[in-house]
Design a protein around this nucleic acid. Sequence first.
DNA 1: AGCACGCCGACT
DNA 2: GTCGGCGTGCTC
Length: 737
Amino acid sequence: MSRTVGVALPVPRLGLLTYAVPDGVTIAPGARVSVPLGRRTVTGFVVALDPPLDAAMAASALKPILRVVDETPMVPPASIALARWAAEYYAAGPGETLTLTLPPVARGRDHAFKTERVATLTDAGREPTATAKATAKQRAALDALAAGGGAAPLAVLVARGISAAVVSALAAKGWATLTAATVDRDPLAGAAPAPAASPLAVTLTDEQQIALDRFVAMAREARFQVAVLHGVTGSGKTQVYLRLADAVRRAGRRVLILVPEIALTPAMAALVRAAFGDQVAIQHSGLSAGERHDQWHRIRRGDVSVVVGTRSAVFAPIEDLGLVIVDEEHDTSYKQDESPRYHGRDVAVVRAQQAGALVVLGSATPSLETFQHASTGRYTLVTLTKRVLDRPLASVRVVDMREVFAAEGPDAVLSPALREALAARLADGEQSVVLLNRRGYAAAYFCRACAASLECPHCSITLTVHRAARRAECHYCDYGRPLPPACPACGGEFLDYRGVGTERIEAEVQAAVPAARVARVDRDTTRRKGAIDAVLRRFGARELDVLVGTQMIAKGHDFPEVTLVGVVSADIGLGVADFRAAERTFQLLTQVVGRAGRGSRPGEAIIQTLYPRHYGVALAARQDYAAFFEAELGYRKAMHYPPMLSLVNLVVRASSAAIAMRDAIQLARALRLGRPPFEVLGPAAAPLPRLRGDYRVQVILKGTKRTAMRQAVERALAQYPALARRTTVDVDPLTML
DNA sequence: AGCACGCCGACT
DNA sequence: GTCGGCGTGCTC
């Protein structure tokens, strides 16, 4: 019996604390315990039994555990190991990452489980002679119950026109019983109907079959391996995933499928549901707390063999894991942009390693990190070079906007080529997608007299114009204001827009093709739950002709009738001072071009740009991943950027620029102490020097020895606790903001 | 994260 | 004169 336990508490950066275990109490790792912390009582996780005590601790009196919350461990040992790894790797507290393994806590009253009244036929109810005197309605109810295997939820009966009163009558006559049962809410209820045929019955192309056979053979080895599925857009990666998942499931091991975003999840979830029925659990942030709770417990109980979810599902309590699939592994939404700043794909690889499982990283545009490992042989590369049914990739035209500006003036938004193509598609009854990766009407509202723009009072950023709402909004904090009638700086009355956003594009498209039914998909139009689903469904049902949107529409969706994709300003993003700008642009363009021509008719893409020769644009137009990878890797080598080495980004916040700089200098000095095996760059003002009222200064670590970098950061921050509280640590940052 | 302590500005 | 702002320290 253990005398002490190491407990992880949900407190940022707090390490394990040791508590005494009262006599006669037994505790297993993974169980939650209620413990005193300062003057409050909190719930933590037992992660270690009888941990080694340091001298100071051994001498002092440990506080005892107040209560054991779980008789049986809340999370399996594998989840603890994974969370502890993530805590260390991402310089977070163990409690922070362990929290990720739990379902969201229901607030207030316990809405955790939904109970439902279920009617069940009794023996008498099944006996035709006993029920001979049933009325017509009662007979209908008895038949419905019999058809449902002898039992059915009351709600289902009511939906079929059988009133609750009739069911009560059956109960009164002893022909049926009514019981309250706990049911799992179905997060797919009301979602797009599942395809009629099982996705597992689809005939694979030769390439798909070869890829599948390869993966199945690897999975059969039941050891940690990483495979990369590099398949061009429309090559049918999903079918390979599903068949592979089925094979692993049949072999008795479980499967985790990660997908990038909530907007994408319903489609994938519906497919997986069609393939595996009630063997699937879904986890993503769009579910209500109650739904997530139900799904989490189905997983924890081992009721399902396949789990589909977004980033946080990587911590789901799955045992006997044999396969992890990371769909669209290059997608930046796998990286959490708040602490703990983990990368779902990277955690997935470690999870597979700890479980002895196969992990498949799939993408049409693999990240540099992933493809680099594939090309050195550390990961196994499997390629799909052809689209299913031999459909051609879209033909691409790059439009040099400088020529358009020269011909039509500087206010041109849609090029003649794009306008004409949109009109032609409409005339042919085909659908189009127009992408611009910036929402709002205009990027700025500026004064023609003094050139001042409306700016956020809390962030170093110009306010975005939302014209329909007649407001200017900050896209980094919650500040917003009505559009002023005159310049707030000089009183000038000639205010104008600069830069375009999706709201403007929607209007321009409507003006160019007045007869078209146009809808917009961006964060502004899809805030409401289910809104994005509704628009995508209308588009899928051909009730819309043109979809205008941000990168939300570039991902994953399969609309066979789309034959034209327009990209309004391919350069957004290239201007950002970020070493991944070219990679992101290439990925976005390649993905969105891949939306065209997925049906029987060939697709076309029109890319408008100011830099037609930029390699990120030109190679995406050619859809030449190999050439892009070579060019980009050359750049990363020359500039000493990932994947050649690793980065840690430290951002120090303070109430004044001077204090932020002073503290960052102190931090950098501590990090440079003792000739460390890595570079310390800065301090320098962060790319966003002010954010939400804070002044920000950054220090960047660059090197190949990640462990040394992390340890140095831990040491430096431990030395200055006040500074640590105001410093964010981002290991393997995706952006330097 | 909370919660307490402590040191500087605007109020009954 | 205090009330209370947030900056800092601490949690087995």
